[in-house]
Simulated assay, not measured.
Amino acid sequence: MSKAAPLPAHLEARGFLVSEAYAAGVPRWRLESTGLLTPSRGLRLAKGTQPDLELLARLHTGVTQRCAVSHVTSALLWPLPLPLSVQAAATELGLIHITRRAEIGRIKRRGVVGHRAPLLARDVRTVNGYSLTSPEWTWVDLAGMLGRDALVAAGDAMLSRTAPLSSVKAIQEVVNRRPKVKGIRLAREVLPLLRHGVDSPQESRLRMKILDAGLPEPAVTQPIHDEGGHYVSTPDLQYKEYRIALEYEGEHHRTDAIQWGRDIERDDRLRGIGWTVLRFSKLQLGRGWPASELKLRRALAERGWRGPAS
């Protein structure tokens, strides 16, 4: 058998456990050949492989018993929206977070940020052959790593309109069980701000900016019907009392001609039944926010809003 001889077909070509290779009859010298790399003890990667998080998750949870991928790594795998800076840092460092039950001890191995926690069986899920902490447990972990708005966006994503990952009740249960974890005060503060039905993290960010400006909180993704009961539209955010719809337009709305046309038709339908439509983009949520806030404030005043209750 030469160094160039292929490995058994049932081993993952990009990476595998050393124990799996031995069980398949692969000799030790073959595992030390120049075509394989050792990212951490007990693991092998094919040279030139750019391992993704799922591969690393399968390998590390396979080589270490009774553990689960956690923190930022778990959030990316679910996936939950994270600030680009957090995503970039996680990718560039090439580290994955792994949590073990508190009584077992923290993992200490190359490529891993180890944690200990009182995980229960319901706090760990198995997805695509690897274990990771539940969305609720992951969200509480993120409270020690993210700011308020980013934590709201992650929580809103868990309660999304399509394929929600969790519920407020389930998140609350984990918050109650982890009174001393880092970031728990922020988690408690943010939990009442989470809303069902949010379609994007930018919508969450827009809602937080509106609240911070002292303006009334808009409703999330509620359908609008005309006087005859016919469906008209489901804006991202809205003030039904004042007949004002707020739409966040992502990049695909601008670059997709068909989507752009649908957006125009949608807004025309709303205006046709007496609604005001205000549109926001990345620019309006950034340096353009002061002007956007003023525009929204004026629209509310024109429709009868008299300011916050004293």
Rank of each mutant, 00 (worst) to 15 (best):
V220R: 00
L237C: 00
L76T: 10
H10F: 10
L215M: 12
H196D: 14
P308D: 11
S33W: 09
A57L: 01
H252M: 08
A121G: 05
H252F: 13
K282Q: 13
V220S: 03
H115T: 08
D212R: 15
G229I: 12
K3P: 01
P83H: 11
P192G: 05
G15H: 01
L132V: 07
R297D: 04
P223S: 14
G15F: 01
T34N: 15
K295I: 11
I244M: 00
P290R: 15
P216R: 07
P135G: 09
A57I: 04
R188V: 00
G288D: 13
Q284R: 07
A163N: 14
G228Y: 15
Y248L: 07
S70V: 09
M158F: 01
E54N: 09
K3T: 12
S2E: 11
M145Y: 09
I96G: 11
K47M: 13
K180T: 12
W137A: 05
R188C: 02
G42V: 09
L270M: 10
E251V: 14
L31P: 00
G111H: 12
W78T: 04
E217S: 06
R298G: 02
A299F: 00
E302K: 13
P308F: 11
G197L: 02
A57E: 02
P51I: 06
L186D: 00
R58T: 05
T91E: 07
R195F: 06
E293S: 08
L294Y: 14
P79Q: 14
W137N: 03
L119I: 08
R207L: 05
W275A: 01
Q172I: 03
R207N: 05
L77F: 01
R266F: 05
L191Q: 05
L119C: 04
R116N: 15
M145R: 15
L159H: 04
E20G: 10
I96T: 08
L77C: 04
G286K: 14
A163Y: 07
W289G: 04
P81A: 10
K108W: 11
V175G: 03
R101T: 11
R287G: 15
A121C: 08
G62I: 06
D199H: 02
D52Q: 10
D267Q: 14
A5H: 05
T276C: 02
V140S: 08
